[in-house]
Amino acid sequence: MATLTTPPEVEQAGSSTTTMTYREALRLALREELEHDEKVFLVGEEIGVFEGSYKVTAGLFKEFGPKRVREAPISEEGFVGLSVGAAMMGLRPVVEIMTLNFILVAMDQVVNHAAKVRYMLGGEVGCPLVIRTPNGAGNQLTAQHSQSFEQWFAHVPGLKVVAPATPADAKGLLKAAIRDDDPVIVVENLPIYKEKGEVPDDPEFVTPIGRARVAREGTDLTIVAHSFAVKRSLEVAEQLESELDVSAEVVDLRSLRPLDTQTVADSVSKTNRALCVEEGWSSYGTTAEVAARIQDACFDDLDAPVGRVGMAEVPMPYAKNLENATLPHSEKILGAAKHVLGVA
């Protein structure tokens, strides 16, 4: 029987943990960091009296008041850019973008400003900014609200991008992001807001940026994923075990920039086969980047071409059956795994 592994930083944090949802873990991280550093403030649409569109900030407005939990108008370019400017002055803004889809109108501020502040100004000024926002699809939200293009940000030097898949990492990575001196995009995920897990109680617990985790140990195939695709991949790994007696290792990337290719390469060198999975479109996607690095780092170890699975390359349709056909669900991942294993 394969084992689900515990990351070293969770072990180090001691035995005291609490079971909570991914959403509650994020809220705990925000509360702890608001208490930890008075330079931290939250800003976003409906994060105050409305308690957040997805209730991540519930209770924080009451607890910390309107100055620390700033309710912004629908004006993403404005308040993202405002946060960049505030960060240049030494504050630590934590911006909520209601969903990843709405960041497009603020892309100039993220890519052409936040990412370049420090470099372009010769290291004279920094930008300790966090933007947290959920990606993901499902629930018939359709084309403009069902996207996962976090790799667009991972493409940009100057930004760091993390994507927690578990409640422990939701807390640990968000805290690491807030304490980091550089702009960090924290990609959350709508379908896993309600997932439960053990979260360390230690207020100093953080998940280091740039460290992948082996979520499940195995010997025959490496599945590389991040965010919600990790959950799908773990389910498929169980199916592979029970149906085909195949032992699959699952690597949860956790950070997209920096990308921990060492952990991926170590795994693939052992299993000799790799399948990359993501929620978004695969062309030019995270799977494309990871596959390119695997073929370079593990060329002599590979027994088969690297496989990839992502969302079908169409805008997300509304009809339930069409939406299902678009998502990278377990049947597709299983099929791709069989293909890489040469048993399809």
């Binding site: 420090r118 980091d180 550089d182 280091p208 290719t261 060492q262 690095r293």
Partner: peptide, 21 residues
């Protein structure tokens, strides 16, 4: 690559990005 990032942990954060770059 100086000043792309400023956090003192950055070199360590990127230390495992090398293979296949």
């Amino acid at each position: 690559a100086q000043h792309v990032y400023g956090d003192p942990d950055t070199a360590d954060q990127f230390a495992r990005m090398g293979p296949g770059s």
